[in-house]
Amino acid sequence: MHINEKEVSYSTINSYSTLNNLTPNTKTVWLVFHGIGYLSRYFIRLFDSFNKEENFFIAPQAPSKFYKGENYRSVGSSWLTKENTKTETKNVLQYVDAIMTEENIPEHTKLVVLGYSQGVSIASRWVASRKIHCDALVMVSGGFPKELQKENFSFLTTKTKIVHILGEKDPYFEIEKVEAEKIRVQQILPQIEFRTHSGGHELDPKTLHELF
């Protein structure tokens, strides 16, 4: 048996969700990446408590969708797997580029890039690879990509707010591994601030309100 695995390039279409309107009164644009199992239109609802005149939210949609549960009614999605990760990452980042081109964010607004759970891997890779001078990079309950090093973020200044938020009852993180990871990430992003909330593996809007 002789199997060849080949590649082909083609155009595709993917959706994304926005919350509120981008107007001259908008002060902050949020680019928010959901975790595994979400759809962007549901994830973006978590930010509904923010001031609607001053905040505009963009939630990209992970391209790989799947049925959740045994009844095949609910749909979730995933950004990446261990399969063909390098190419899939390239595809996803180009999709994010297309979104930002389409939205044409004004220069006077602040930009917050946020990743939740699996979305942390996309948020951090996009900022690093595109050298995005964002005002804040927020990582919530997610692992930092192993391949990223300090030099990948050398373009950022100390004015960039970098925060990692973790639930104290998050079942996916063991305290020993968390402490070791904190040391590694702090070497890469020296100005990072570590925050916790009393919940589990979830995005806590209250913690975000305290930061912004």
Rank of each mutant, 00 (worst) to 15 (best):
I3H: 11
N4Y: 09
K6I: 10
E7F: 13
V8I: 11
S9R: 03
T12W: 11
S15A: 10
L31G: 03
V32S: 02
F33N: 02
H34P: 02
I36T: 15
Y38S: 10
S40P: 03
S40G: 10
I44E: 09
R45S: 11
L46N: 13
F47P: 09
F50T: 14
K52D: 11
N55G: 04
F57D: 10
Q61R: 06
P63Y: 04
F66G: 04
G69F: 08
N71W: 04
Y72Q: 08
R73P: 00
V75Y: 05
S78R: 11
K86T: 11
K90P: 00
D97Y: 10
A98F: 04
T101M: 09
E103C: 09
N104G: 07
I105S: 03
P106L: 04
P106D: 05
L111K: 12
G115C: 02
S117D: 05
A123F: 05
S124F: 04
S124K: 05
R125L: 13
V127K: 13
A128N: 12
I132S: 07
H133A: 14
C134I: 08
L137Q: 06
S141E: 03
K146H: 05
Q149H: 08
K150E: 14
F153N: 01
K159S: 15
K159Y: 14
G167M: 07
G167L: 07
E168K: 14
P171T: 15
E176W: 01
E176F: 09
A180W: 00
K182D: 00
I183Y: 05
Q186R: 12
Q187G: 12
P190K: 06
Q191I: 04
G200M: 14
H201Q: 07
D204F: 08
P205H: 04
K206A: 11
L208K: 11
F212H: 09
F212C: 07
